[in-house]
Amino acid sequence: MVEYALEAISHAGTSLGIVSKEGVVLAAERRVSSKLLETRDLEKTYVLDDHVAVCVAGIVSDANTLVHYARSVAQNFEATFSEPMPVEQLVTRVADLKQGYTQFGGLRPYGVSMLYAGWDRNNGYQLYVSDPAGNFGAWRATCVGANAQTAQSMLKTHLAGPSGGSGADGADGPGADTHTSATSQDDAIELTLEDAINLSVKILCKTIESSNVTSEKLEIAVLTLHPVSKKPVFRALTREELDILIARIMAAEAAEKAAAEAEKAQQAARAASEAAAAIRANASGSGN
């Protein structure tokens, strides 16, 4: 049963998350099924509490139930302890619920993977992924949904440090704990929030199966700390901001492509001139 759920998620729109120095980015592809559908700023991203937000992939109605559950768990915690719920604990609670449905027969598991972005006093900015089976892990950057492999490898090339790409594969798997794997964190590149947003747009532009990406097909939100109050703030990027970002990424890519082509042309020209020189040399050689 869980396998079916996992399969459903691998067809869902890509969602990705990146932890940066100044905040966590959640980015997702939204699939506009009809022109007549009313759209909101955030379709797949939900706020669970002031300090935790989640981006879902999979069966939307299942996701709603889980979001509902997570919100009540978070508020219950705060009612008991008068403090915001530590992010990992909230993730664990929801994962426990999901796990239950893998164990007892006759029930369908929740067909939802979730990307959690959060901040708490103990561990700072955090990103977690949980799957329908109830597995979860902490990540510095990861993604779920269609083309997750492509996006994941792009994240790896952009984020793994000098030695990260080759050796750290084992530590990247689900369940790897970012708090304890200090060595893989040390040599990894730490992005600024701006870089993280740019990277997420760049990756989504690649993974979305469409020739022209527009702001309608993206949703991006960031969790940061308020510069003065130091309280967590969650904000969705506006359409206008997205348009600017997409235009900039597209322009940069076009320039890159043009540069590559110019390089190729130059190489071809150089090869041609070398060949011509060789022919000339041969011709003069045979002349003697």
Binding site: T80, F81, S82, E83, P86, E88, Q89, N122
Partner: peptide, 16 residues
């Protein structure tokens, strides 16, 4: 959870 409750959280827990 691998970390201790803060005094404030503990006090609120006792209150609850």
């Amino acid at each position: 959870n691998n970390f201790e409750l803060s005094p404030k959280a503990a006090a609120n827990y006792v209150r609850t």
